[in-house]
Amino acid sequence: MIGEISPSIIAFILGILFGTQLAHKITGRMAALVIIFSIVGALLFGAFTFTYSIYGGYIMPGLGLSMPLITATIGIIIGKLLKGE
């Protein structure tokens, strides 16, 4: 179980790190757009091949959710907010 959570946490931290490197203003609409796109992308890229839990993103055979993509996107937006400007 923990082996499925750690990648998402790492992705979140990396997202915050790289989010601080963004300069332009991000509106709420743009943030929502990006998060929706990331969920669509997570569906496209699928889940971990080996994890058999809901958290790991495995919903049913042939359908999965790539959690690190979503957490990374959230992390980037949070990182941008932290940096301010």
Binding site: P7, A11, V34, G41, T49, P68, T73
Partner: peptide, 22 residues
């Protein structure tokens, strides 16, 4: 441009965190 850059960032992060399994 900016949303695409953000999504590419998160895609890169996804690739690096899932590399031991895919």
């Amino acid at each position: 441009g900016l949303p695409a850059a953000i999504l590419l960032f998160s895609y890169g992060i996804m690739v690096v965190t899932a590399s031991s399994t895919s």
